[in-house]
Nucleic acid binder design. Structure first.
Lengths: 238, 238
DNA sequence: GAAATAGTGTCTATAAGACAGTATAAA
DNA sequence: TTTATACTGTCTTATAGACACTATTTC
């Protein structure tokens, strides 16, 4: 490293890949783009793109999020965090690409915008990605999505991240449905209410009640400032 | 991305940086190298190096671990995991470098081996890194070390990672001292014993007892296969 | 015997799990 | 009136925290 000649070290392309999750009609969904060209033409891939010369990977992720969802970053009120970096030498047959993967969560994102290299972009139900008629996934994106899903499930245990999936104001049942949807099983609703209300500043009640569905009018809440759930609200481990 | 001309995307160097922790004489310590050249000449830096053309970042981290500690990867019985990727455009003034940071834990590593670009390499007590007479740290490595420390502290709560800091056979007090050292406070020893012994396969007893210190001969244990502590053994959160 | 350490026991507070049961509103 | 939903309450069990106490060994 005496001289900084490019031949001293291998050059890499660096990209970001985004796992953008939302809950559409009670179904946990992820945004994927259909690749319009080789390699993996016709396969589905995570949205993403190259990190620019004058931005870090966080900024690149915000930029791509905006480009793919059409939501301006100033209007984006969800959550974005780095997941993990994937760097296998042959993960992209064209060249050496290191990808910094991100997880984004947001409520009710609009229908996606297809980008330059994408023939199509749409929300996929997560449960449809790994079953019988699963779409073909490009690159190592199946692995990335699996890791991202586990991250989201785990973070619901000890953070208030579930709030990112609901729009204010919401009912406690709305929040409970988030846990049910993401975890794939329903925690006891009565115990769930007790837990959420016992965490200081997880949610705060409003003066209003919802209407429409049969039954009593449920109280509406807004998000509180708490970020950590302590003690954690754990999933069952057998 | 129609053509793969290098001018279509910015070229990056990709490195790994290793947070190698061990407990020396009851003190949580991290391996740092003193930089022998600009930039940050004379500052202390995390050991690391470039990711090679035909390896992924995990392999590069294993290779660097071996080079810096002198421990062959086949003999390395500690723990290595990816932490986070750091990519600020100006984190290295020479060129655009993206660094994939790792955390390694091991018991009783030998004195380090200085590499090519390191004038010196030594173990630093973690508590000395951020105090009055703290060494000057190169690049964004102070940030990386802070993140790494928090990762280790957190993982002691819900994984059996503390086992990576002791050599077999060990006493329950040895293991308790790991928690005390890493967390910076002493959990109740009696409750600690109860907790460790209640987690199936966290540790398993041997037939032997230790000797030397005053008091009864403590039973010796070896590591079990469990990786998860459930329910977690939590630090206090006020 | 003093001091240090290993280990056991116990009481209490907290929280989780598993419900039962009641009230309210829409269709 | 039926049904879905929104709560409230309660009993049991699991676990954590605090700490007293005993036993064993070295010096």
């Amino acid at each position: 490293m005496e001289n900084y000649n490019p031949h001293d070290y291998p050059p890499f392309a660096v990209t970001v890949d985004l796992n953008i999750f939302t809950i559409k009609n009670g179904v946990l969904s992820i945004l994927l783009v259909n690749r319009g060209e080789a390699p993996y033409e016709g396969h589905w891939a995570l949205p993403g793109g190259f990190v620019g010369v004058n931005e870090n990977s966080d900024a690149a992720a915000v930029r791509e999020l905006e480009e793919e969802t059409g939501v301006r970053s100033s209007d984006f009120n969800g959550h974005l965090e780095q997941l993990k970096t994937y760097s296998d030498p042959n993960r992209d047959p064209r060249m050496r690409v290191v990808s910094v993967a991100y997880v984004a969560l947001a409520p009710n994102l609009p229908e996606p915008v297809a980008g330059d290299d994408a023939a199509d972009a749409r929300w996929w139900a997560v449960e449809d990605l790994f079953g019988e008629d699963a779409p073909r996934l490009a690159f190592d994106h199946a692995t990335i999505i699996t890791d991202a899903l586990e991250r989201v499930k785990a973070k619901l245990e000890y953070t208030t991240l579930a709030l990112q999936f609901v729009t204010e104001p919401f009912t406690l049942n709305d929040l409970w449905r988030v846990y049910t949807t993401v975890w794939g099983f329903a925690p006891d609703l009565a115990n769930f209410r007790r837990k959420v209300l016992s965490v200081p500043n997880f949610v705060s009640p409003t003066q209003d009640r919802s209407t429409g569905s049969p039954g009593p009018r449920p109280l509406l809440y807004v998000s509180g400032d708490a970020e950590i759930i302590y003690p954690p609200f754990t999933r069952h481990h057998e």
